[in-house]
Design a protein around this nucleic acid. Structure first.
Lengths: 249, 249
DNA sequence: TAAATCCATGCAAATATAGGCATGAAAATC
DNA sequence: GATTTTCATGCCTATATTTGCATGGATTTA
């Protein structure tokens, strides 16, 4: 039996059954396991099937799992979250916004830090529930499926009744001239309420968002007390923010 | 059976049912629990599912939480949730309690049913966020890490300002004489508030909980309008509940 | 807090793999 | 046509992987 012929048979079997065992093929074609292994290895490198331990499976067989949970720019967001943590003291009362950067902050929150934390983000609340010493309070309201945060009149009203030491907020876009801007009107309203309820507002933003703007404005850049990016505070990218009265971390 | 094949099967099961038990998979695939555990662990590290104590859950349907989720008596809870769905009509305004049975109800909610749903449970809210036609409103308040629901004075006050057509509640214990009882005092207070805010109250409970009681009382059995278990309504176990004015489903 | 359940770890047996080497057949070269 | 080269193949061995089981520790549930 020719090599080509054999490999074609293997491919057919894989297509037919979605999977094969090397031992089965070896027996069926009356060749050694080693030969089949070499064939399959070759077919794998030609991307005609996928070799696995003990056999091979059809390429089309693997069903893609629902969602790729990869967080965009996780490294940068991790650095930002680390920096933000340095602002926290035991007993602080803080607010944490939605978004992946803020979720990262929640995820990295130390287990032994006793603080009270308001949030309107479900993912943030979930992360914080793992921290025994964090008192988590969710701001009630209508839940936006897109952002997984509560929004709307009720959420804004609830926010109006609190006052926290620090709020850690994210933003869609930030520019030293245009300030913080968003794509979504409802989100802007909530962020405004958050800033109004905070003694100090800390902006967490990856450098990628610097010098960009969009339709709806959350606040002027002056409304921010501290700005945290993954960059070194002396980085040239931050020059335009230095005129303002902002602490850059 | 190939390892890859097995893992693919596990993934398919998780996608299909959103939750699986390690023991079920082990039995179905005729391999040891250890093997399934190793597979699930591997799939978890590949971010294809999330491993939880005793089983695994789909990624898409959970908030970003490492907290374990209970998969105990899932079959029964599934049946109960199915029955509960039959009570819903388009336009209904309902409340869904915390607990795995209620989460199951949220998970099974049809995508095309337009309803407004209040909840104080984070997992329930997360499940409902996947349903484009469900308007989700979270009752704000302090979050109990144990139950993953909001509790306390603020939550109770927020509940006092709403009135829903149906509330679907779970309970720790239920007995035809002692009524609904709980282990936890705070939970009882919230459930009381929920019942007060509902035109009709529907109890979801697996039969295992029937004829059991605990320290704190939520309400008399008469306060319940409809009771749903996984049993056939004519089952003898339900006899003691028949004297009361309860619709047994 | 106690009982039940689940999990991580190490171990051993079975199986799979990679790479070296020998053999024989086909192909290329002289 | 004889010799050399190339290649496919099978066999062997050391190594790696997979899997079930036992154990002690961790977690969950009541």
């Amino acid at each position: 039996m020719l090599k080509e012929e054999r490999q074609q048979t293997i491919l057919n079997e894989v297509e037919l059954h979605n999977r094969i065992l090397l031992t089965d093929i070896a027996e069926a074609l009356d060749v050694s396991i080693d030969t089949v292994r070499r064939d399959v290895k070759e077919l794998d490198s030609e991307n005609k099937l996928r070799k696995v331990h003990g056999g091979a499976i059809s390429l089309g067989f693997t069903v893609n799992s629902t969602r790729n949970q990869n967080v965009y720019r996780l490294e940068e967001k991790n650095i930002i979250a680390q920096k933000a943590l340095s602002l926290l003291k035991p007993g602080s009362v803080i607010f944490i916004d939605g978004g992946t950067t803020c979720s990262e902050l929640a995820r990295l929150m130390p287990h032994n830090l006793e603080i009270t934390c308001f949030t309107h983000s479900l993912p943030v609340a979930s992360e914080l529930l793992n921290k025994p010493n964090v008192n988590v309070i969710i701001v009630g309201g209508q839940v936006s499926s897109e952002s997984q945060t509560t929004i709307g009149a009720n959420a804004i009203h609830n926010l109006s009744e609190i006052r926290v030491d620090f709020s850690f907020i994210g933003t869609g876009y930030v520019d030293s001239f245009y300030g913080l801007t968003e794509f979504d009107w409802d989100i802007v309203q909530v962020k405004k309420a958050v800033i109004k309820s905070s003694k100090k507002t800390v902006l967490l933003s990856i450098s990628e968002k610097l010098n960009s703007q969009h339709r709806y404005k959350t606040c002027d850049i002056n409304a921010i007390n501290t700005m945290i990016t993954e960059l070194n505070p002396t980085d040239a990218l931050l020059n335009s923010f230095r005129n303002h009265d902002i602490h850059i971390l």
